[in-house]
Write a protein that binds this DNA or RNA. Structure first.
Length: 283
DNA sequence: AGTGGCTCCTGGCGGC
DNA sequence: TGCCGCCAGGAGCCAC
């Protein structure tokens, strides 16, 4: 499922081909992809030149002249940079950006959770008002993390998935970051001490960075806009490894459900109470 | 306000 | 072999 590293991978790939192209028309084949409707979307985007691409959490932002388009891939969304010679997928694209006589940006999305928005640049701040700090941005400090954790009774796993606290962390990278930080996913967030918070902060950045460096995790259907797969799935320590031996200590990885989400951890490397004596790194 | 449960959606897979 | 039913999960919504 696309999280921060996957969306960043998509952004970097599209950065090599989209800027400078003109959005001739946005064709919406599945009206559920946008609450605005094709007329409204086209009024904002059609005829405008693409200026650049940014990312905010798991949202991909396309800057065009005088407007902003935002795409969320959710579970199964895929953006494909295509020329007309590329055959259409079995399912029709939920939307298509016509970018020239031979060039398209197609949005494939089997589970139909993905979304497209278009608005004026001055509305961007409101759009992202509820979203927490960017992990690689200046606001995401150890001090910020400590204050965000303080007093919370929700499990650490739920805390990490809450986009209002930290933007961009999803199920894979939450589990992997908790393993790297040697923190049990069911620990109440507020029970995390200063040194543990520091470990968690570092683990989040290291895990997300590793995901980006491996072009994301190609679990489910993720591939980048050129059809390339990522390789971070080969590096996973706990995610979807329930019952398999921990790569650090050999103990069987456990799978539990937290907040309705599959959650994977090593019961030895991530003890339920605060780790005291152990200091094995998580690789 | 914070928390947890439910919902959307459908391909894939386990079980019989 | 085939079909039924369940499961995954990001984020929004709702109830407490």
């Amino acid at each position: 499922m696309p999280e921060l590293p996957e969306v960043e991978t998509v952004r970097r790939r599209l950065l090599t081909c989209l800027p400078g192209l003109i959005v001739r028309e946005v064709v919406i084949n599945d009206s559920a992809v946008s609450a605005q409707g094709a007329a409204d979307v086209n009024a904002l985007l059609a005829g405008r030149r693409i200026l650049g691409l940014r990312r905010r959490g798991k949202y991909l932002i396309v800057d065009v002249e005088g407007a902003v388009a935002v795409i969320h891939l959710r579970m199964t969304g895929q953006l494909l940079f295509a020329d007309e010679s590329m055959p259409a997928a079995a399912r029709p694209a939920r939307f298509v950006w016509e970018l020239g006589p031979r060039t398209q940006l197609r949005f494939q999305d089997a589970r139909r959770f993905g979304r497209l928005w278009a608005f004026r640049p001055e509305d961007e701040e409101t759009f992202f008002a509820q979203l927490g700090p960017e992990p690689f941005g200046p606001a995401f400090t150890v001090e910020y993390l400590r204050s965000a954790l303080r007093g919370r009774t929700a499990p650490l796993k739920s805390f990490l998935l809450d986009q209002r606290r930290i933007a961009g962390v999803g199920n894979i990278y939450a589990d992997e970051a908790l393993f790297r930080a040697r923190l049990h996913p069911l620990r109440p967030a507020g029970s995390v001490g200063p040194r543990e918070a520091q470990r968690l902060h570092a683990a989040l950045l290291e895990t997300l960075q590793a995901g980006i460096e491996h072009n994301g995790s190609s679990i489910e259907s993720f591939m980048d806009p050129m059809g390339e797969r990522g390789s971070f799935q080969e590096m996973l320590n706990v995610y979807q490894r329930g019952g398999l031996p921990c790569r650090v200590c050999g103990t069987a990885i456990r799978r539990v459900v937290v907040g309705g989400r599959g959650t994977h951890f090593c019961p030895r490397c991530q003890p339920a109470r605060g780790a005291t004596g152990k200091r094995r790194g998580a690789g």
